[in-house]
């Protein structure tokens, strides 16, 4: 299918992108790699009148060491995140999860910032950023602000970014020697996770869930159980608490609840081994 008629605009700086968003309001969408947005546009599920292409902005795809965290430019492609030696050593979960997104051709175009802005509860990368305790830097007409990943996803495909803001950077705290695991359960190659789990067992263990609600989310009950000294099995047994798994062709909510418990236990076991 062909997207609805639209106006294509290029931004050559973050300021220009913000100006375009301010000018066109809710008729406009930002376009980076386009691998979430363009499929939606072909199905006419998204019908933006204006696309503001930010993919050519300079300096927004660097991956750099910023002391206690790694600064990943919003336009860093999945393939670049996957192959970054800095991320492989300092936040290996993120590099690993990037290597599991879609397929190689998708990873050549899709961007980390785009994946987060899309806010799909079935996506892999939001779960990784949540489990790593990352934060998202956004820039708008009033300057810059930093949003904790835990506060970032506000509803189904909705985030805390306002209409006139763009993501410029994703900050990933170094996870050091903390154990980590990523469990993605699907039936066919390149499918989205039916349920997925990311875990990082740092000073305060963080566990996140894929496709267990309207947003990418932290497994609060699991984290509380671990903080209270519970075993992996005990913590995993409450994995579905506080979630609202969807039912679809791949499985109903009850099945997803079961998968969440199984996959959280596997993740905790692997991360602590």
């Amino acid at each position: 299918m062909i997207p609805a008629a639209l106006k294509y605009v290029e931004a050559d700086s973050a300021t220009a992108a913000i100006a375009a968003l301010s000018e066109y309001g809710d008729e406009a969408k930002l376009l980076a790699g386009g691998h979430s947005l363009i499929p939606l546009m072909r199905f006419r599920l998204a019908v933006p009148a204006v696309l503001v292409d930010i993919s050519r902005l300079d300096g927004l795809s660097d991956i750099t060491d910023a002391g206690d965290h790694i600064a990943v430019g919003a336009l860093a492609k999945h393939a670049e995140v996957e192959s970054s030696s800095l991320l492989q050593s300092e936040a290996p979960l993120l590099a690993h999860v990037a290597s599991k997104v879609g397929d190689p051709s998708v990873r050549h175009r899709g961007t980390l910032g785009g994946s987060l802005a899309h806010g799909d509860p079935a996506s892999d990368l939001p779960a990784a950023v949540l489990a790593l305790g990352g934060s998202i830097v956004v820039q708008g007409p009033d300057g810059e602000r930093v949003i904790d990943a835990a506060e970032f996803f506000t509803g189904f495909l909705e985030t805390a970014i306002s209409e006139t803001e763009i993501i410029t950077e994703v900050r990933i705290p170094k996870s050091g020697s903390a154990g980590w695991s990523f469990q993605k359960f699907n039936r066919r190659a390149q499918d989205w996770a039916i349920v997925g789990v990311a875990a990082v067992l740092g000073a305060s263990p963080k566990v996140s869930l894929i496709n267990m609600g309207l947003t990418p989310l932290r497994a609060g009950a699991v984290e509380s159980a671990l903080a209270g000294g519970g075993s992996a099995a005990e913590a995993a047994s409450v994995a579905a608490e506080g979630t609202s798994a969807p039912s679809d062709l791949n499985g109903d909510a009850e099945y997803r609840d079961h998968l969440a418990r199984v996959l959280v236990e596997r993740a905790l076991d692997e991360a602590s081994s």
Partner: peptide, 23 residues
């Protein structure tokens, strides 16, 4: 037409890309 099958794969700058998912 859903970015899944790869029949439309071309190279951009030498890298494989699904040309149905790029303007």
């Amino acid at each position: 037409d859903t970015s899944s099958c790869g029949a439309c794969t071309v190279h951009i700058g030498g890298q494989s890309v699904k040309s149905c998912t790029v303007l």
